[in-house]
């Protein structure tokens, strides 16, 4: 049906979107998680082990990946949430390095040679999962939980006075965020059938945080834009001058950071866009 090239782009877009939503949830409640690759690796390897060693069907191995990454997210959220700002960035970054180190040194997980995961998840599964996750995140952000998360992001003391369980909201966001990053890893493992520790590196963590920060953390549209932009624009630029495409891409990012430092998609932006949309629809 689809060409291999287009299918490949859609698959990576789906994985990036789910991954970005995982990091977005923590960012929306005011925490910066630079350990994304660590959670994705946990999801990928837990799914791989469930599938290869326990011979579970894909649904259950993916579920295992989600639960594994979610559980680790829950556990490390307690020490990590004691830190703030740049210290939290460093703590989560260190976490990802530790995970990578453990995998590289584990014979059971294949060490530096990686792990083959033969059970194959076709791109349709990825598209379906992405669709569900986007719906869930939009739903969550429209609920009181989402409102509380955004309130904690803005002012945690006042949120607490308003009756919000600030610590609870932060742990919830970190756990669910870890679980989503784990899901993206599990899908990655089953779609590409091969995982290695070197893939889940620091650059990947930085990239996914960039998806979220450049897209904007104020609304659930932000990561949708950010992940799509970072995945699709380099491919679109491929159509033109191949030699300069990363230079152009880099300039675009710098321009976005200059003109939209709070993220490309802000609440005001969404509000104005929806006004225009309704006005056009009424005509």
């Amino acid at each position: 049906m689809m060409g291999g090239y287009v299918e490949g782009i859609i698959a990576i877009l789906c994985i990036n979107l789910i991954f970005a939503y995982g990091i977005y949830l923590t960012a929306a409640s005011g925490q910066l998680n630079l350990g994304g690759a660590g959670f994705q690796a946990i999801g990928a390897y837990v799914a791989g082990v469930c599938s290869n060693y326990f011979e579970l069907p894909i649904v259950f191995s993916v579920l295992g990946g989600i639960l594994g990454a979610g559980l680790i997210g829950f556990l490390i959220s307690f020490p990590v949430l004691r830190t703030r700002g740049v210290y939290m960035v460093l703590a989560t970054f260190a976490f990802a390095l530790v995970i990578s180190g453990i995998i590289l040194n584990s014979e059971f997980l294949g060490g530096a040679t990686g792990m083959v995961v033969p059970a194959y998840a076709p791109v349709e599964v990825l598209i379906f999962s992405t669709f569900i996750i986007i719906l869930i995140v939009f739903w969550l952000m429209a609920s009181r939980v989402g409102l509380a998360m955004r309130a904690v992001h803005d002012d945690d003391v006042v949120s607490e006075i308003m009756g919000v369980n600030v610590k609870g909201i932060q742990v919830f966001a970190f756990t669910l965020g870890g679980a989503l990053a784990g899901l993206s890893g599990a899908l990655y493992a089953h779609h590409y059938s091969f995982i290695e520790a070197q893939y889940f590196n620091a650059v990947l963590s930085i990239f996914v945080l960039l998806f979220v920060l450049i897209g904007g953390t104020q609304t659930a549209w932000g990561p949708l834009f950010g992940a799509s932009f970072f995945t699709l624009v380099p491919e679109i630029l491929r159509l033109g001058d191949t030699e300069w495409r990363y230079v152009i891409f880099g300039i675009l990012i710098v321009l976005m950071m200059i003109f939209r430092p709070q993220g490309v998609v802000t609440r005001t932006f969404v509000h104005r866009a929806s006004k225009i949309f309704y006005r056009t629809a009424e005509r």
Binding site: W139, R144, A148, R150, S159
Partner: peptide, 28 residues
């Protein structure tokens, strides 16, 4: 909350009354 809208800020004041989990996850 500087990034929340007027209505959202006002609705934050109701948070303590939404005790049940169903109230927490219902889209408002």
């Amino acid at each position: 909350m500087p990034h929340l809208s007027v209505l959202e800020n006002v609705m934050m004041g109701q948070h303590c009354q939404a005790n049940r989990i169903t109230e927490m996850i219902k889209p408002i």
